[in-house]
Amino acid sequence: MGLLQILEIIIPTAIFAAAPLILTALGGVFSERSGVVNIGLEGLMMMGAFIGAVFTFYGETWGLGGASPWFSFLVAILIGAVFSLLHAVASISFRADQVVSGVAMNFLAAGLTIFLVKKIFDAGQTPYLNERIFKSDIPFLFDIPFIGPLLFGDAYITSYLAVALAFVVWFIVFKTPFGLRLRAVGEHPMAADTMGINVAKMRYVAVMLSGAFAGLGGAVYATSISGNFTHSTIAGQGFMALAAMIFGKWHPLGALGAALFFGFAQSLSITGQQIPLLKEIPHVILLISPYVLTILALAGFVGRADAPKAIGKPYEKGKR
């Protein structure tokens, strides 16, 4: 088997597996850059996957046809933002421990989604979706020799959307006044407050953005990868996105790279059996590699990863 063939198997699956991770990790960047830890990404993603599956299903019955998944994305973004308000209220206004509040979010999403699925469909999972995001070759770009079939063949449009959004988020965080305020609030809220920035408002916006992105990530997962929603549809992807964000050093493009890399590791663990050399590597090494790498990155072995200064601390006006 030639190298090119191997790459043709691995790279599209990597990009495919990475899309939900990229989107959710970008959400994490917003929240954590503003100084609010978001362990609740997992729960937000679960909510998004649930909404994605349910509203694509209803989109089908309402006759939206091929637009149903896109309709569900819009709803997932909206509901994700609204659902994340709980985390915002608890951790910003009521000064709850942000990690505890995030854990509660995960519990709540796990309970609420399955409760509603059972209530709506009278079964433990949603029906399988007919209208999904399907693989297709991207016109024009596919015809580029060598790179074309590798990067643009047999791929999901949502993956490119995710990559493009990473650049948009980078622009917002590092090149706009809004981004500057966001980072200021996360690094030194008191200084930001002195300069007339409304710390609580900025943090509310950031947490809601993280909910919107994680919701979209979950919905993309449901409509492109799993095809329905069950209690085990989202099992750790949110935490893996969190890991990607940290491995990417709280930087949107870093998170993009890390998510692609984790997607790559995941795709190796799925497709590795077809590739001669990789057959020798035990499955488990590939499965745990994203987590081990994140720990190593945090310990400073793979480049130092430093969190925003004020992360995890509620801002109390006038307290030194």
Partner: peptide, 22 residues
């Protein structure tokens, strides 16, 4: 009633305890 309701209740209890600042 689906038993997941209890997961919801536990999540709410965590929220309320954590928000004891109020």
């Amino acid at each position: 009633v689906p038993p997941e309701l209890i997961t919801i209740v536990i999540a709410l209890i965590i929220f309320f305890v954590a928000s004891s600042y109020l």
